[in-house]
Every structure is written in C-alpha cells, then in structure tokens.
Design a protein around this nucleic acid. Sequence first.
DNA 1: TGCCAAAGCGGAACATAGTTCCGTATAGTT
DNA 2: AACTATACGGAACTATGTTCCGCTTTGGCA
Lengths: 193, 193
Amino acid sequence: MTRSRPVRADARRNIDALLAAAKAAFADSGVDAPVRDIAARAGVGVGTVYRHFPQRSDLVVAVFQHEVDACTAAAAELAAEHTPGEALARWLRRYTEFIATKRGLAAALHSGDPAFDALPGYFDHHLRPALKSLLDTAVAAGQARPDVDPDDLLPAVANLCFFDDITRPGHARRMVDLLIDGLCRTPRLPSSA
Amino acid sequence: MTRSRPVRADARRNIDALLAAAKAAFADSGVDAPVRDIAARAGVGVGTVYRHFPQRSDLVVAVFQHEVDACTAAAAELAAEHTPGEALARWLRRYTEFIATKRGLAAALHSGDPAFDALPGYFDHHLRPALKSLLDTAVAAGQARPDVDPDDLLPAVANLCFFDDITRPGHARRMVDLLIDGLCRTPRLPSSA
DNA sequence: TGCCAAAGCGGAACATAGTTCCGTATAGTT
DNA sequence: AACTATACGGAACTATGTTCCGCTTTGGCA
C-alpha cells in the first residue's frame, strides 16, 4: 500500500547519493547551494535531481528529515552503549553537530515559504521524545539534575548553535559543553524561589 | 565636504521615485521583489537603479533607513499635536505600520548577509530614543505606567508584528492595542516580586 | 542664447539560478 | 533475447541580479 511499484535499483542508488551530496553541499555552502552543484557532487544530471525531488525545497526537506531520523536513532544506540549520563551528554553533542550543518536553514524556516511548514513539527515530534527518554533515564539514575525540562533544553542548545559566530570558532561547542556540565550536576541551590 | 558635487535634479527625482517604488514593491511582494519590477514602478530603467544603488541590498537598506527616519520624525510631530498619552499610543501604532511592511526582512536580517549588518544598530539608535522620550513624557504626565522599559517595549511590539499570521487578519493590531491599553493604566498590583 | 562636458539614463546583454523537456539508456519481466 | 516502463543526462527555457555602453539631459559658461 505504501509503494505501488518498487523503486528501481539505479534510482535507489541515485537517491541515496543525492541525499549525501546535498547534505555535504548544504554544510559547505548553506541551504542555497545550487542544484547543479549537488547533481555534480552526486555524479548525476540535474534531470535526475528533479525526477526524485520535483522542487529544490523537496531536497532540503528530505535531507533535513533524513538527518533528524539519524539523530533520533542515535539516541537509542547511545543509550545501549553508555551509562545514562554519558549517553545524554554524547547525544547532546551529536545533536549539536546536527544543528551546526543547518546554516541558513533557520532563515528559510522563518521565511514563510510553505514548503518548510512541516519541518518544525517533524523536528519536535522526533527529537523531543528522544531527548526526553535520555533525560528521564539519566535523572532516574541520579546522573542528571531533575529540574530541567527537555522542552527547554532542545531549543536552548539549538539557539546556542544557530547564533554561532564564525569569528569565534568553537564558541557553540564550548557553550554546549558548559550546559552539559551544568546538567549533570545537582542544582547549586534548591530550585525554589 | 559631505557632498563633493551636488546631485543633478533629474537624479534626485529618480532616487526619490525609486525609494517610493521600492517601498511599495517590498510591501506588496516582500524584500525579494525583483529589481526590474521596482524600476518599472518608478518609471526608470534598471541601469538607473544600479547607478544609485550599486547592489540590490543597498536599495533595501536605503528604504529601511528612510522609513526608520520617517518613523522617528513622527514621534516629535505627534508629541507636538497630542497629549503625552495619546502621542505615545499613536506612535506605537505608527511603529506597528512600519514593522508591518517588513515582510521577509527579518529573515534577511538573520541570514548573515553582511550587507544588512548595520540595520539593527540603525534601528535601535534612532527608534529607541524616540520611544523613550514619548514614554518618559507620558509617565511624567501620569498617562502611562512607570514600570515599563522602552527597551522591552520596542522589541515586544516588533515581535507581535513579525509573527503576524496571515490566517488571522488584524491579529497583530489587536495585540498591540491590548498592549497600549495596558501601558496607559497603572499596574494592577504593585510591581514587586 | 547657444555650446558643451559631465552626469545621468535606458535597456540590451551577460551570468547564474531554478525548472522543464525529450531523446537515449537500462532494469526487470516475459 | 525482446520488450516496456522507468530512469537518466543535459540542453534549453525562464527568471533574476548585475554590467556595459551608446544616447540624452542638465547646468554652467561664453
């Protein structure tokens, strides 16, 4: 029901190559990277790009969702391989890397282009549960402070990275590390007031 | 010293026509309005546009500053013609109109294009003193509550408008009116903790 | 008033970008 | 092996920013 006819093998290859090429191009040149460049990186013609992604924005959306999925999947993998606190810390750095490749996407998201309307929802719907699970587990194990809300943490880290300044390399990374350090300790004062 | 040679009369006319045409085009189609459209509205050729505004972004910047200037000047005019509270309220609505024509500019401002680096500073440097003066006068006259900071008010109103939803016409206007109503009354509770 | 050099003008032409089209190649089936 | 739906490549078309240059206008000056 989901797929009326199976995708041909060469098409599957090209789609994968295009997603990888687009990811690289967006990281290098921002979301405005020309379609021709992406096609060249993937070793295909522009016609092939448009066969699979009828509009440029479809490619942007696909790469974004692909990376959200990968970042979501990383949560379960890290949880299986590390202590709860370590898994949380590693995932937040992984999430930082994800955000770091989104240069220019923030502007596109707020540009009002309806092509990108679904992205914030996709983002929240997948990443929030992933983080919540890691955080809850870490808190239960006494390896993260209990007074932090995942709904605060996710955009906070994103903001740290979105406004990352080219003139201060590593700034975002340092700030996120700081946040993680704070997160994995108990509050300095009882969080009353 | 400021101008080595005076601007020729026809050039002056065209510059004014271009600023007006660009303002209208930006309001209709956003900051991405094509240069050809703007030239046509102004009744000039594209060459003329580029003579006076070497890059597209220069035209955007010029229109923006032109409108900031007009909005700043309105503060003094309103202060001379109305009671302090009324002048404040009218100016805030005037400011709302200014923001409303900025569709797409917010995204451009945050896109990292260095052409727009100076705009936020220009904005603050001119509009903040204008509002502060109106607000102080209204507070002194007992026509506005004293516990509101102009540095809060200016971005607050801007945010109300920047995220104005096309699907809910008049939303921003209503929210700003609400804000003004609150501003011109005394706090409901002593503004302690 | 008439002349003229500088300043300004218009729009064709160029460069780059998204998108479409179509003749050719190929995967997968019979 | 033959065949057909699917997919491929890239030239061509459209839209947009920008440049160039021959023609026109302005404003000072004789």
